[in-house]
Computed example of a mutant assay.
Amino acid sequence: MEFNHFDEAGQAIMVDVSHKQPTLRIAVAAATVHLSPPIVTAIEEKRTSKGDVLAVARLAGIAAAKKTADLIPLSHPLAIHNVAVNFTVDRDAGRIGITATVKALERTGVEMEAMTAAAVTALTVYDMCKGTDKGITIGDIRLLHKEGGKSGVYRREETP
């Protein structure tokens, strides 16, 4: 198996994408935050002491996508054209699903930007609720879809 972030001597490198032509790149990533059902209800009804948790988390996710190159050492700084963060709330299960979609006309993919957006969105939900619920967990951070570039389309098969 070959990893392209290492040279022949095993040194970490940034992949040279200067020879590639820009194409539309799209990636969708997801994360899940598990909280107690009463906290999920309070979030959904905007009754938390810190305000609108999902609005703040959405902004954090958008900002995180734009800062990915500052956080992941070998990722490329990209001119992102769109970031969308959406939520699915399941009160009964005590779960908030996060989906982050990133688009850019670039030479390399935006998977890391979408994954970073989903992760930081989840962390922000955690941060805003940790004083009320110490048992919050974050999980299932994953790439759902990507397209653009020579590797073509990838779509994760989700199991219910």
Results as ranks from 00 to 15, higher is better:
residue 30 A to R: 07
residue 70 D to H: 15
residue 110 V to S: 07
residue 89 V to S: 00
residue 80 I to C: 01
residue 41 T to K: 14
residue 109 G to F: 04
residue 100 A to T: 02
residue 47 R to N: 14
residue 94 G to I: 11
residue 81 H to V: 06
residue 49 S to I: 10
residue 35 L to C: 14
residue 58 R to W: 07
residue 49 S to E: 13
residue 34 H to C: 10
residue 55 A to E: 15
residue 96 I to Q: 04
residue 84 A to C: 11
residue 98 I to Y: 03
residue 30 A to N: 03
residue 60 A to W: 09
residue 111 E to W: 01
residue 104 A to I: 01
residue 106 E to W: 01
residue 35 L to H: 08
residue 41 T to W: 09
residue 61 G to C: 05
residue 78 L to Q: 08
residue 42 A to I: 08
residue 123 L to D: 07
residue 48 T to M: 15
residue 60 A to F: 04
residue 44 E to I: 06
residue 49 S to A: 15
residue 66 K to R: 15
residue 117 A to R: 02
residue 40 V to N: 10
residue 51 G to L: 13
residue 78 L to Y: 07
residue 99 T to G: 03
residue 51 G to C: 12
residue 83 V to E: 12
residue 73 P to R: 04
residue 100 A to I: 05
residue 48 T to F: 12
residue 97 G to N: 11
residue 52 D to P: 03
residue 32 T to N: 05
residue 36 S to N: 13
residue 34 H to G: 04
residue 25 R to G: 00
residue 100 A to M: 04
residue 30 A to Y: 03
residue 78 L to A: 10
residue 59 L to F: 11
residue 68 T to D: 03
residue 23 T to I: 00
residue 35 L to N: 08
residue 97 G to R: 08
residue 101 T to V: 11
residue 100 A to E: 08
residue 114 A to K: 02
residue 88 T to G: 12
residue 100 A to Q: 10
residue 86 N to R: 15
residue 48 T to R: 13
residue 72 I to P: 04
residue 111 E to R: 05
residue 108 T to R: 01
residue 36 S to G: 06
residue 98 I to V: 15
residue 47 R to Y: 14
residue 109 G to C: 00
residue 117 A to G: 02
residue 28 V to Y: 08
residue 55 A to F: 14
residue 23 T to Y: 00
residue 82 N to A: 15
residue 48 T to V: 06
residue 56 V to A: 12
residue 121 T to W: 02
residue 31 A to M: 03
residue 80 I to P: 05
residue 49 S to L: 14
residue 69 A to D: 11
residue 115 M to R: 06
residue 106 E to R: 00
residue 83 V to D: 11
residue 103 K to Q: 10
residue 109 G to M: 02
residue 92 D to K: 15
residue 32 T to H: 09
residue 72 I to A: 00
residue 114 A to Y: 04
residue 33 V to A: 08
residue 126 Y to M: 14
residue 25 R to E: 01
residue 25 R to L: 00
residue 71 L to N: 05
residue 101 T to Q: 13
residue 122 A to Q: 05
residue 85 V to N: 04
residue 36 S to T: 09
residue 109 G to V: 07
residue 69 A to F: 15
residue 37 P to G: 09
residue 110 V to H: 02
residue 50 K to T: 12
residue 84 A to P: 03
residue 77 P to N: 09
residue 89 V to N: 11
residue 37 P to C: 11
